[in-house]
Amino acid sequence: MSEQNRDEQRTGDAGSPDPTDDEMLIQTDVSESVERTGASFDRDTVVSARDINVWYGDDQALQNISMDIPEKSVTAMVGPSGCGKSTFLRCINRMNDLIDSARVEGDLYLRGKNVYDDDVDPVALRRRVGMVFQKPNPFPKSIRENVTYGLKIQDKGGDYDEIVEESLKRAALWEEVKDQLDESGLELSGGQQQRLCIARAIAPDPEVLLMDEPASALDPVATSQIEDLIEELAQEYTVVIVTHNMQQAARISDQTAVFLTGGELVEFDDTQKIFENPESQRVEDYITGKFG
């Protein structure tokens, strides 16, 4: 990030009532001494990983991951089971902190601030980095309360009704539920529940939206709706999606990162490049199904 952009960001958020968010605006230079995997993309970088290593107990799940994720685009993470792609996703919003045996080393920067610095509050971080999981997991509450849940915890003032409508519209769910906002979110179909979870994740207006196989539990029609939605969301948010469905990655992502067994990031490039002519023979073999 340029010095000018950093200054703009500081100025722009100067009035934030949340001291933790303010602390997170203290920028540090992202280390360039570590060789990162992947091409340089045209867009500004939002998330930078430098030498990320993760262990679960004695098992190493990620090895020296260094990559830059560009803003307002869809970055897909693909690879065989156990390759560490979901582990990496959970590093970005420090969800791995919740796993006792997990140990993370290395630096992970969000807009230039290392999210593993001692002064970073993981709860505040997760407001800036929303997450949607494989299985739709709405709370056993009304549709309205599901959307406002994070805002209330944050105790962010403002017009909740407006935020509910806007979030549900962005999640392409408003027209289907606008007359039943006080009914339980659990009454919705699987695809609607997942879009409700997306509305809940974007209500606090995060910068990054992490999605861990968000359509794998859905039927083809609901999957198509989620895919369309992801492409729309990427106009405003930086979307990072883990998927086992490589055709889904090919359809909806701008960049694709291929992790292979052992927690190694083997190639990270424009999606078109990965699926038409990858540099790595191992990636070629994996995406054409010759192993895995």
């Binding site: 490589m246 055709q247 090919a250 699926f275 038409e276 002519n277 990858p278 070629e284 995406i287 054409t288």
Partner: peptide, 9 residues
């Protein structure tokens, strides 16, 4: 089969 990469080419 949704071929990709060298298979698609």
């Amino acid at each position: 089969q949704q071929p990709v990469a060298s298979d698609l080419r």
